[in-house]
């Protein structure tokens, strides 16, 4: 599984990093984000790229998991 941490990064870096990570076409990817904007952008990118997405939310972060549908 591909895992990356975009916490604390300004736009558009969460999107840039996630897009780069998707280049290897991982069957599963996990992204750690901490702002609503980064979460929304990453989730939309994963869904549009054909992943099923689940989000776990804690006080510190959103843990976004994408699994190849």
């Amino acid at each position: 599984m591909k895992e990356l941490d975009v916490r604390g990064l300004s736009c558009p870096m969460p999107l840039m990093h996630t897009k780069k990570a998707l280049e290897g076409d991982p069957s599963k990817i996990r992204v750690h984000a901490d702002s609503g904007t980064a979460k929304a952008n990453v989730v939309a990118l994963l869904k549009d790229s054909g992943y099923e997405v689940s989000i776990e939310e804690s006080d510190e972060e959103y843990r976004i998991t994408g699994t190849r549908a």
């Binding site: 998707l22 869904k47 549009d48 790229s49």
Partner: peptide
Amino acid sequence: MGKRRMVGPTA
């Protein structure tokens, strides 16, 4: 890499 949807619901 799989095909990417160009215009999703967020658009």
